[in-house]
Every structure is written in C-alpha cells, then in structure tokens.
Write a protein that binds this DNA or RNA. Sequence first.
DNA 1: CAAATGACGGGGT
DNA 2: AACCCCGCCATTT
Length: 116
Amino acid sequence: MSRYARIYAAVRSVPSGRVSTYGLIAEIAGLPGRARLVGTALRKAPDDLDLPWHRVLNASGRISFAAGSDLAALQRARLEEEGVPFLRGRVNLRRYGYPARDEHLDAALWSFDGSL
DNA sequence: CAAATGACGGGGT
DNA sequence: AACCCCGCCATTT
C-alpha cells in the first residue's frame, strides 16, 4: 500500500463533526513526522476520491489556507455545516480533535488497521 | 543534479 | 498571542 493511500485512508477515518491535524494524520498513516507530506498528498488527491479533507487542520486548530481564500472559506463552511464551531478563527482541538485524549492514538491506529 | 517550494510543527522571543 | 526561525522531506522547478 502506497504512502498516499495510507494517508487517504487515515483522512477517511476522521468522523463527521470532528477534526484532526496534519501531524496526527501522518502518525496514524504510519508516517510520523511527515505532516508536510499529508498536505502534499491532499493537494494532489483526485476529486473523485471524495475525501473529507476539510476535517484536517494544522496543529493550532487553524485552517492552513490563506485567510480570505476560497478554499479557506469552503473548509470553514463545511466544518460549521457539520457542527464544528470556530472561535476567533480556530477550532478547539480539546473538544473536537480526533483522536481525542481518551481515544488513545493506539486505539486510532488499531481501528485504522482494521478498516483497511 | 541543485535549488526552491510548501494544505507542517516545535521552540524561542 | 504573534511572530520568527529552523528542521523536516517529498515534489517540483
């Protein structure tokens, strides 16, 4: 399985109404420390894959697209649409982050491997 | 092949 | 919080 395929699978594992981060997605995909690669993979992702790319934020809970850009507006709109609120331009990862503190990373890894 | 680029992240100021 | 700076590394010039 290619690195991109694992990244896409990890992105698909983020539930609606929750958000993850580039770094966490990389870790779940078995590519620790390669947050930038997640961005590269999402940029190159074919549209027909229908990935929930909008659920991936940076480590500060902020949208990584330039403020005011169309993509930034779309990402925020899609997140708010599924119940993820923004406070002063950022999402509270404590509440909406996936995997949450009690949903240990090991558990996320396990379910990820099982849903391949 | 060398240099630049970037949907990142962490540490320091 | 807001910057700045630097390490990271696959991709693209």
